[in-house]
């Protein structure tokens, strides 16, 4: 009876499986109804404090590294929205350590669907809805006020950049999650990455000196999340110590970083040592 399905390509099969698993995840999340509101609020507060932080500071200081309040706010909004493109679909990646330590991965390896897919559909990340609400809200509010002459082309670039930025963050987190198959726990490492991105990817990164900027572009590619595309939209690519075309291509950084992270993750599954039972 399953004969026809075997001819499906793995990608189509995974898409089908993700629909099935996501539905299960949401159904389970809804069975705890009380937590719904507090989770969404939690998500908004998590990122909201950063917005508050930058708002309070700019009210006192007016400029950061030559950027005015409206452009910084737009940059922060971009970073928040990009983050939503990571946490809404991939938020459950956060629980990779539990998935491994409790042996849930056993089950994923036994089923006819991708392991990564099953990890990210472990549960529905309710909190991510808060992130999304805040992020898209911030872009909607701050984009018109930024010093950008909006054209349809720029809007398309913005959307591509947000999705790409989300994938950059996803790729980095996926890579680190892959290490969990070897190490007891990578939670602190992943929180460190998340926290660093949360706190610093919304600044004009060239302020961290030439070497700081280059490491945040090529080693820990945080610059791709919001700053590089923002320099394109704001016409500030001259600030960059790298060629401008790289900033114009920055939305493509997402798929590249994500692919690297995913390949690494899948390779590391071989090191999985199922907890003894």
């Amino acid at each position: 009876m399953a004969e026809q399905v075997k001819t499906l390509s793995p990608i189509r099969e995974d898409l089908r499986a993700s629909r099935i698993l996501l539905r299960a995840g949401w159904r389970a999340a809804m069975s705890y109804r009380i937590s719904f509101l507090s989770a969404i609020l939690g998500g908004m507060v998590l990122q909201g404090t950063q917005l508050l932080f930058i708002g309070v500071l700019l009210a006192k200081f007016n400029v950061i590294d030559g950027w005015r309040l409206n452009d910084i706010a737009f940059l922060f909004g971009m970073r928040l929205a990009a983050h939503a493109f990571y946490v809404v679909p991939f938020g459950a990646l956060l629980s990779i350590d539990q998935a491994i330590q409790q042996g849930d991965v056993d089950r994923y390896l036994l089923r006819p669907a991708g392991t990564y897919l099953q990890v990210i559909t472990r549960y529905a990340p309710l909190m991510a809805l808060g992130d999304a609400l805040l992020g898209f809200g911030a872009v909607a509010v701050f984009a018109p006020q930024a010093s950008v002459d909006w054209t349809p082309g720029k809007v398309v670039f913005l959307i591509a950049a947000l999705v790409g930025g989300g994938l950059v963050e996803t790729g980095m987190q996926t890579f680190l999650a892959g290490l969990s198959f070897r190490m007891t726990s990578t939670m602190s490492l992943r929180i460190l990455a998340d926290d660093t991105i949360t706190r610093f990817s919304g600044y004009p990164l060239t302020m961290f000196s030439r070497w700081g900027f280059l490491s945040l572009t090529f080693i820990f590619p945080m610059a791709f999340i919001a700053y590089l595309p923002a320099t394109v939209l704001l016409g500030r690519t001259d600030d960059l110590p790298i060629p401008a075309w790289l900033a114009y291509l920055s939305p493509a950084g997402g798929p590249v970083v994500f692919a690297i992270g995913l390949v690494f993750f899948n390779r590391m599954i071989r090191s999985y040592t199922s907890p003894g039972s």
Binding site: S35, A39, G43
Partner: peptide, 18 residues
């Protein structure tokens, strides 16, 4: 009082940090 306290914890952590 409630099993799922993830949201409350985050609310508290970041609220209190600010």
């Amino acid at each position: 009082w409630t099993l799922e306290i993830g949201g409350i914890m985050i609310l508290y952590r970041f609220g209190s940090a600010f």
